[in-house]
Computed example of a mutant assay.
Amino acid sequence: MLPARHRLTDRADFAATIRGRGARRHGSRLLVVHARVADATQTDARGESSPRVGLVVSKAVGNAVIRTRVKRRLRAQAAPLLTQLPAGTDLVIRANPAAADASSADLGAAMRHCLRGLLVGERG
């Protein structure tokens, strides 16, 4: 479970992370990870700059049981990665339909691959 300060819940924050200024994305067969890193001066509405994660799992992934399973697995894989993210980072993780048949390990590997591509691309 992600602590409340690490959850992205506001529609405007999702939109800014996916389509806003400075938004980046990296994808794989299972996932697409959208990221936006805030400046040092920007913080969220609560005055914190901790990294936040939001999930998008559409009906294309499967029925409610499958979508819930995918979300649970993604949250479990995202939680330990929060300490490696820069302060003020917002992530939106979008599951592709292939994620329905993927194991937790596969989802975690895809997430790490996408984050590595985003963070390396940011430095380079």
Rank of each mutant, 00 (worst) to 15 (best):
Leu91Ser: 02
Leu8Gly: 00
Arg46Lys: 10
Pro51Gly: 03
Arg21Asp: 08
Ile66Arg: 12
Ala78Ile: 06
Pro86Leu: 13
Ser28Thr: 15
Gly108Tyr: 05
Cys114Thr: 03
Gly20Arg: 14
Ala23Gln: 03
Ala60Pro: 07
Asn63Lys: 14
Leu31Asn: 12
Leu55Val: 06
Arg36Asp: 04
Arg69Gln: 09
Arg19Asn: 11
Val56Thr: 10
Ala40Lys: 10
Ser104Gly: 15
Ala99His: 03
Val56Ser: 06
Ala15Trp: 07
Ala64Gly: 12
Val53Pro: 10
Ala12Pro: 05
Ala4Phe: 04
Arg46Leu: 13
Leu55Cys: 05
Lys71Thr: 03
Ala102Trp: 09
Ser103Pro: 01
Ala12Thr: 05
Glu122Leu: 14
Arg24Thr: 12
Ala45Pro: 06
Arg46Ala: 12
Leu118Phe: 13
Pro86Lys: 13
Arg11Ile: 07
Thr9Lys: 00
Asn63His: 15
Thr43Pro: 05
Leu85Met: 06
Arg29Met: 04
Gly22Pro: 02
Val37Thr: 13
His113Gly: 07
Ala95Asn: 08
Arg52Ala: 01
Pro51Leu: 02
Ala102Gln: 06
Leu82Gly: 07
Leu118Tyr: 10
Ala102Lys: 07
Val32Trp: 08
Ala23Phe: 00
Met111His: 14
Thr17Glu: 03
Ala35Thr: 04
Ala45Asn: 11
Thr43Met: 09
Ile66Gln: 10
Ala79Arg: 11
Ala87Thr: 04
Arg19Lys: 11
Leu107Arg: 09
Asp13Gln: 05
Val33Ala: 01
Asp44Ile: 06
Asp44Gly: 09
Asn96Glu: 15
Phe14Leu: 07
Gly62Arg: 07
Asp106Pro: 04
Arg5Met: 02
Leu118His: 09
Leu81Asp: 04
Leu115Val: 00
Arg123Ser: 13
Ala15Met: 15
Arg72Asn: 07
Leu91Tyr: 05
Arg25Val: 01
Ala110Pro: 04
Leu30Ser: 10
Gly62Cys: 08
Thr17Pro: 02
Gly20Glu: 11
Val53Ser: 05
Asp13Phe: 01
Gln42Gly: 07
Arg21Phe: 02
Gly88Met: 11
Arg69Tyr: 01
Val92Tyr: 02
Arg11Cys: 08
